[in-house]
Design a protein around this nucleic acid. Sequence first.
DNA 1: GAGTTTGAAACT
DNA 2: CAGTTTCAAACTC
Length: 803
Amino acid sequence: MDVVSPDLNSILPDEIMDTEAMAMEEDPPADTLTPPSRSAPEPTQVPMETEVPEIVNLCPTTTPTQKTEALTTLTATDSTLCSFSPGTQLVITSSSSAGPKMATTMTTVQTSSTVVGQNVTKLSTPFTPTSPVNHQLIINKVAADGKSPGTAVLKQEGQKLLVTGLSKTGQPIVFALPNTWSKPATSQGTGGDIKPQPTQFKVVSAGTKPVIGVQTVSSANQLPGSSSPLQAQQLKTVQITKKTPVSTAGPMITKLIITKALNNKGLSSQATITPVVTGRVLTQSTPVTPPRTITIGETISTTPQSLSSVSSNSKVAISPLKSPSKVTVAAQPSNSPQKPMAVPLNVALGQQILTVQQTPSTSPAKAGSSSTAQTVKPVQTVTVGGVNTPQFKTIIPLATPSNVQQIQVPGSRFHYVRLVTATTGNTAQTANSSTTTNSTTIHSAKPMVMNTAAVRMSVPIVPAQTVKQVVPKPMTSAAQVVSSSQTQQRLIMPAAPLPQIQPNLTNLPPGTVLAPAPGSGNMGYAVLPAQYVTQLQQSTFVTLASSSSFSAPSSIQTQARLPLNGLSPSDATSRPRKPCNCTKSQCLKLYCDCFANGEFCNNCNCVNCFNNLDHESDRLKAIKACLDRNPVAFKPKIGKGKEGESERRHSKGCNCKKSGCLKNYCECYEAKIMCSSICKCVGCKNFEESPERKTLMHLADAAEVRVQQQTAAKTKLSSQISDLLTRTTPTISSSGGKLPYTFVTKEVAEATCDCLLEQGRKAERYNQPQAVAERLILEEFGHCLCRIISSAAKAKTDCSINC
DNA sequence: GAGTTTGAAACT
DNA sequence: CAGTTTCAAACTC
């Protein structure tokens, strides 16, 4: 198979995929469900990672004539994410002739066979179509051929998709495809074989409502006879799963999985118009809302609660250690239901590598450029809330296939991309990006001209709320991407053949993104360090988020954001990592902190740096070498201790001999953790009862507190005085007199007292004698008075001038 | 800022 | 696995 084999998923890092299931899925016969006319083998599987198996239900159905190519499902058991209400389940039902093989079929949907088995068991019971309690979104996949369902799972050929969602009251919501939709055909460039084009279903849902959106994409309308091979059609599945503790107060885990089905076959047409086949929600009954017809392909944001709510209130914890293949977001129940959510339905449709276009790079050498102007690709952004940051976003260029999808979570180094093999034609939906000035165009289900070339885009996103024109950089099909905000490199380059690193894929640095190299037949990957995503977070993004008909317009509005002037003021200061200064390692050894953290060097002072996209192949080799030496080389060194231990500890322990583990030479001390039993340090003083350690800690704490307090006090006083002077304009007589006293208002008095108290505390901290304390206080009082008088005098002068 | 110290990483 | 070397950060002056 010329596309990325589904098996590839099996070797993805644990963080990315569950590999167990993949073993069972070894290249099922591609043609099992493929019509004979199909000239090229296609991946028959659309492995999806599912951490919450119970959500997936594959039930054999009775419709033999139709097949569902791919399903994108977003499931959430929690209301805070997406629009599912608590307990809502997304059920994917795949029809097959063989009921007993259902488990096998499910494996195709999920990457983990073991999970699948569990899922079956779990799902069988809870799944009650009419159950008001278990709200389920059901996608019924009907296999057309009835051939062994176990091997051929999600096929792209003729398909009918039924999405059945149960409202809170258990009323079903069904998405059905039009009858005409099932058999799109496209002639292959070479053989002219007309084979049905795979239809893609993409379902993205979030929040309390059963379905945020379901999109179907049909490639049927691709220009026939086009000689230029279209890049593999890819189907992405975005899955967001939340694990919700029984207790609503507990943290919830949200998993966002994006699975993309890749089309390995070259599809015809350079410019492919891929109309979105529209389907309808046949019924949607909820007590709250009347039955409604929803066009598939339409981006739907149903809920006020949703991803956005996660962003605002939830912690995003994406750990590669927990569930590799998924993006896990631990979210707390949203307290702000009305927050904006940008959950483009078509997020799953995005086929492009996400990248961020950067502002003009200050490091020309690092920035790539495309030689050929190309149609701008539409991108989509999935926005999910993160800690301390409003959102994490997934930018998905919609136009071209890509195996990579990034999920960005602020504060998290881990970003996952799923690579899923699938055969399909063009992805249809999306808007014409080149003219996109508003994200609303993106989610439209209109047929669009698609750029077939592989494109990797970098799209800068500006945090600003203003919708601006999106001007993605033209990319070449061969593309390397490029871009960097500020000085950062942002893009994905054609990578060395994956096999080079496959043996160690499971140990890739956290957050590493595998991106198919353009023109490499999806077999090449660029390794994107987690930093890449992190950098994106820090930088501006172009956000093209689909809004839905339901959603609050203001919040979920599609937006195109561009960097206003390159760097935002905070950009320079927001960089989490210090620049490295490597001179000999080429930043390709673990000596380099950037490299060790899975980041590209950015704004570093390194010499002869290879830790960038320009040297991706070298970088891959270096990664492989590191992993060969130490399979967990890129795993965080600081992790939890033994079972039950809550404190962090160094995974290997330190080996300090001279520093007493009380200097930053010591990795334990540097991480602000105490040495543990696994440390081999000599003369360690970094333990709980160590007086030296306590002293150091106290000093450090005291210094920090001191600075903070002083800063706060000064700021407060200054602001208050300034504020007073501006808004309280006392009657000032030119004669002066007692003018300064008119400025001693309550606020000024309070601010002054704060300053005086601070001096007292300061003296106390240093165990100063009372006399010294009094002196400090008096001096501070004098200073305050001087400032008040000065301000008053200035006000007087100003008044005199004005008068 | 230059030089030294330190300990992890890399190498043998 | 142990000893040595290399390396870059931390630290000192």
